[in-house]
Amino acid sequence: MTPISRRLALAAPLALAGCGTVLSEQPYRPRTDWPLAPAPDLHPASRPSRKVVKVHGLDAGPALSDRGLITLEADGSIHRGYYNRWATAPADAATAALMTWLQASGDFAAVVGDGSSVTSDLTVGGTLDTLLAAPARGEARAALTLVVAKPVGIGERPLAQKRLTATAPLAGAAPADLVAAQRAALAGVLRQAVALVARFR
């Protein structure tokens, strides 16, 4: 072995040890999955109708195709969280929440989902268009385009279509603040959704 080769062989373990030190100093950041399930805050109807409502799975808007928390930056760009995300896809969570809120309203005899074979008197569907936090504006936003229809034969006859929007104040920029404000904004939309469907009870 030449003197140069000997020096390179001795230096290699030191270089590797140095790399190991750098890697070990990087903090581990686990992902956090946040539930998106705002609890209903409604006064149940004292005399529910005999109608059954079927809730179709809500579609996801263009920016809500995955679970990362969305933040609207001051320059108008969108940041999608990697370490902080919803426990389930936002549109799926909003579908489950809509069913829960309709049931809690007491306006109907039953609320069922797509997989149910029960004959329904009304159907509800639509698209979750927006769910994000905007720290620069100190708020969170939610928007849902809702369609209420009546089953007719093998199809449905639309009764109402409306885009529902709501905002909620944002207390801070920590992940827990972003989540709490978005839940509150979604609750505002769900409250409007229940009122819209109740018009046809």
Rank of each mutant, 00 (worst) to 15 (best):
G155I: 10
W34K: 03
R7C: 10
G126K: 01
A173D: 13
T145P: 03
D59L: 07
G18F: 13
L102Q: 02
V118I: 12
A174N: 04
P90S: 06
Q182H: 00
L196E: 13
R201M: 01
P135K: 00
L102P: 06
R201L: 01
V22Q: 14
G20S: 11
A171M: 02
I70Q: 11
A60F: 04
I4E: 07
T127Y: 02
G126A: 02
L42V: 12
V118H: 09
A181V: 02
A63N: 07
D177Q: 01
Q103Y: 10
T167G: 05
L190W: 10
L8W: 14
A171H: 02
V22M: 14
V124S: 03
A168E: 04
G138I: 05
A39E: 13
Q26T: 12
D75T: 14
A198E: 08
Y82H: 09
L98E: 03
L170S: 09
G125S: 08
A97T: 04
N84S: 13
V147C: 02
R199A: 10
Y28D: 12
A173E: 13
K150Q: 14
E25S: 15
G188I: 03
A39C: 05
K51E: 07
L132A: 13
P135M: 05
G57T: 08
A181S: 06
L14T: 12
A136D: 14
R191N: 07
G20M: 13
P48M: 11
M1I: 05
A93F: 05
L196S: 00
A104P: 10
V124W: 03
I4F: 06
A185Y: 04
A193G: 00
F200M: 02
T127D: 06
V148D: 03
A133W: 10
V124T: 04
C19L: 15
Q103S: 11
S65V: 11
L144K: 09
V118C: 01
P30Y: 01
I70S: 08
L132G: 04
L122F: 07
T32G: 00
A143P: 08
V197H: 05
S65A: 13
W101Q: 04
V112F: 09
L36A: 00
A160K: 11
R31T: 14
